[in-house]
Design a protein around this nucleic acid. Structure first.
Length: 470
DNA sequence: TCTGGGGTCCTAGGACCC
DNA sequence: TCTGGGGTCCTAGGACCC
């Protein structure tokens, strides 16, 4: 979406249309979240202190964000994306990757462009806002294309033209290259994407470390085979506050940490999760920032436990001089609490006792029967079997849904489908033999639609959260 | 009136275990 | 007779993204 928050406010407030609008922190220490294109003319940018924006553009409308509105619009847009493909990976309220191949769109420029243009029209009529579309054979390239398409446009990167297109661009174009990486590269005489590729992988790894160096080298060559992964569960939940005036009173600091802990727990419970590691964050008067964390014996969503841990961590932090920001977070998220596990163990013990007391008559299926075999989590990579679609594996899961790719060691690369986590047609499966074909009847995976032109390096995308970082 | 809030991923050292 | 070689977990910090 183009200048999303600002555009949403302009759509909601006719008097602001065509005028500079700045959405962000309105207080003395606020920063700009989004500036409308009219405000950008004056040099106002995202992440700029609002005070500076006011100097550059005193006549703009300065508004606090209204996330309920943005979420509503976002949901409408995401719904349109899901009509295109089961594989939709939201990056934020206003941006998402869509795997059109998984949606059965033919991998031809004309067809893909038509889908993109129709999407833009649908977004316009559903929300009144404009969006931009980037189309390419890889996530990185699609993102660069959509950036180039803004505002209100569409750009296709034809397979084969990637290196020529990227070569002259600044390294900052590549996702993952921020100020620090760009400075490191600049000192090594590397400014453009072409120069990055010429530097070679070994040199980039030496400069930037293993993961970042190797990843950047691949990107510079236009190589990016990361799959689109939908339905990812959050890995941490945190809340933080910057105070208008630095806090110096130790008691006040303590009560603020308690309030933040409670807010964090509210979010945790709303998400139906619990966490095992509690972390506090302290930003001092001089902007120096530290974190302290503590891992509990088991996951919890108990406000008392998390409050106590947060305060315990605070005790060990020197706050003389003043505190600018405080934060409380929880990571190591689980779907169950320690208490749940105890309760579960207890009921399992009871069931065992019952079974011992009244053994099942031989051959009888019994009242309770066998409980349907359900995995506790649909872990990425897990083998599964679907009543209708046959054998496959979990490509990702979360938010009550699970995405499965239906293929076997001896089938062609397969298609992806999404189910509710409780779908009774889906069961855990056994690992299949890698050679020798399968028993009759398990080859129900659909043939793939994988045209050479859009297939990343001829290799099948690999699953899972672990694999998506390069 | 200089620098938000909510995330993700990576690195590195030490503890601990086999 | 200085010092193994993995692995995982925990903690802290940093870069980056929207």
């Amino acid at each position: 979406m183009d200048a999303f928050y600002a555009s949403a406010e302009q759509a909601a407030k006719p008097s602001l249309r065509g005028k500079p609008v700045v959405v962000g922190g309105i207080g003395p220490r606020g920063v700009v979240a989004t500036a409308s294109y009219e405000a950008r003319v004056f040099g106002v940018r995202s992440a700029m202190p609002t005070a500076q924006a006011r100097r550059l553009c005193p006549n703009a409308a300065y508004l606090s964000p209204r996330f309920t509105l943005y979420r509503q619009v976002s949901e409408a847009v995401m719904e349109l994306l899901h009509e295109l493909s089961p594989l939709v990976e939201p990056l934020s309220l206003d941006e998402a990757f869509v795997d059109l191949e998984a949606g059965g769109v033919p991998a031809e420029t004309a067809a893909v462009r038509a889908v993109g243009e129709k999407l833009r029209r649908d977004i316009r009529s559903a929300t009144g806002l404009t969006g931009s579309v980037g189309l390419a054979g890889a996530k990185m390239l699609a993102k660069i294309a959509s950036e180039a398409a803004k505002p209100n446009g569409l750009v296709v990167i034809e397979p084969g033209t990637e290196r020529e297109l990227l070569g002259p661009m600044t390294v900052r174009t590549l996702p993952g290259v921020g100020p620090a990486t760009a400075e490191t590269l600049r000192r090594a005489g590397i400014h453009t994407v072409a120069e990055t590729a010429e530097a070679g992988e070994a040199e980039l790894v030496r400069l930037l470390g293993k993961a970042h160096g190797a990843g950047l080298y691949a990107m510079a060559l236009g190589r990016d085979d990361r799959p689109v992964v939908a339905e990812r569960d959050a890995k941490s939940i945190s809340v933080e506050d910057t105070f208008e005036v630095d806090l110096t009173d130790r008691t006040r600091v303590r009560t603020e940490v308690l309030r933040l802990a409670d807010r964090c727990v509210q979010r945790l419970r709303a998400a139906g999760r619990s966490g095992r590691t509690v972390v506090i964050k302290v930003r001092n008067y001089d902007f120096s920032t530290l974190t302290r964390s503590e891992t509990l014996r088991g996951p919890t969503d108990d406000p008392g436990v998390i409050r106590e841990a947060a305060v315990r961590l605070l005790e060990a932090v020197d706050t003389t001089g003043g505190v600018r920001l405080l934060g409380v977070g929880v990571s190591g998220l689980a779907d169950f609490t320690q208490e749940d596990l105890f309760a579960q163990l207890a009921t399992e013990r009871e069931a065992e006792e019952l079974a011992k007391a009244a053994p099942e008559p031989a051959g009888g299926t019994g009242e309770g029967g066998e409980p349907e075999e359900r995995p506790r989590r649909w872990h990425p990579g897990l083998d599964v079997v679907h009543e209708e679609y046959g054998a496959g594996w979990v490509q990702g899961s979360g938010v009550g849904r699970v995405t499965v790719r239906f293929e076997t060691p001896w089938s062609a690369p397969g298609r992806v489908r999404t189910f509710a986590v409780g779908d009774p047609a889906l069961r855990p499966g056994e690992p299949l033999p890698l050679v020798g074909g399968g028993p009759e009847g398990t080859q129900s995976s659909e043939p793939a639609i994988l045209p050479k032109s859009l297939s990343p390096e001829g290799s099948e995308p690999v699953p899972g959260e672990e694999m998506s970082s390069r």
